[in-house]
């Protein structure tokens, strides 16, 4: 268990204990594990990750930078007694080489030493809370993979054409080329203007080429967008509506 001590000037504010495999974020926003309420600190300023190999601190593109032993760093492997400076605050690394097995009950050590300038609420770091957060993330992964929509997507012409098209193919091409499933006319329309791809988690509409950009719900598309039911797709003069069968 590694301990990080937060210091302001000469005043010791708080101690944070970090378990292997866990991350500690530092920043101004109160979503961080270590919240420093100072305008010079970026919203998400730095992250400290405890791995087998050691302790890795990464600067998250902060405005005023993160310093280790007065040197500016982007990513840095920490040593014991290193001083991480974030504006006027300092985090000191200790117990880096102490193994968990020697002191199994170290978790209770992370008590408040001096609450001083800061509100307790913004500086909570409970290893249990963090653990449950990690668990939450894991379940999230599983839920997202489970939420597969197996229902078939259908496109129906609202204007500029007639009929409907069931999206049974893996790729639906839209453009002026003959090979396209949905033909679109126009000088600036690309040969393949856009594609609709069936991915494991749904249908994605992607802009492909050409000067004229397709629009979904009146917003021009230049990348990939996941299609939702009743999205209105405007390609050239035609308007199509997407829904699930």
């Amino acid at each position: 268990m590694v301990t990080l001590t937060l210091i302001y000037g000469k005043k010791q504010l708080k101690k944070f204990a970090l378990k292997k495999g866990e991350a500690l974020t530092v920043g101004r926003k109160n979503t961080n594990n270590v919240t420093i309420d100072n305008v010079a600190v970026s919203g998400s300023h730095a992250e400290i990750l405890y791995l087998d190999k050691g302790l890795l601190v990464t600067d998250l593109n902060s405005k005023n930078g993160t310093f280790v032993n007065k040197k500016k760093i982007n990513a840095h492997w920490l040593q014991n007694h290193d001083r991480i400076s974030i504006c006027k605050h300092t985090l000191i690394v200790s117990n880096l080489h102490v193994q968990n097995s020697a002191h199994p009950d170290n978790a209770s050590d992370s008590t408040i030493i001096g609450s001083g300038l800061y509100n307790d609420e913004t500086m909570i770091l409970d290893t249990n809370a963090q653990k449950s957060l990690v668990e939450q993330n894991r379940t999230k992964t599983r839920i997202r993979l489970n939420k597969k929509k197996k229902s078939l997507g259908v496109l129906i012409y609202l204007s500029g054409g007639k009929g409907r098209l069931e999206l049974t193919n893996r790729i639906i091409k839209i453009g002026k080329s003959d090979a396209c499933d949905i033909p679109v006319k126009g000088f600036f329309v690309g040969k393949t203007m856009a594609t609709i791809v069936k991915r494991p988690d749904g249908y994605y509409f992607s802009y492909y080429q050409g000067f004229t950009k397709p629009k979904i719900n009146n917003r021009p598309i230049t990348g990939s967008v996941k299609l939702k039911a009743h999205d209105k797709i405007k390609v050239g003069p035609s308007v199509l509506e997407f829904y699930f069968k």
């Binding site: 790729i171 594609t195 791809v197 802009y207 990939s224």
Partner: peptide
């Protein structure tokens, strides 16, 4: 195999 083809940005 499961196949998926997408444009790259």
């Amino acid at each position: 195999p499961y196949l998926c083809e997408i444009p790259v940005y």
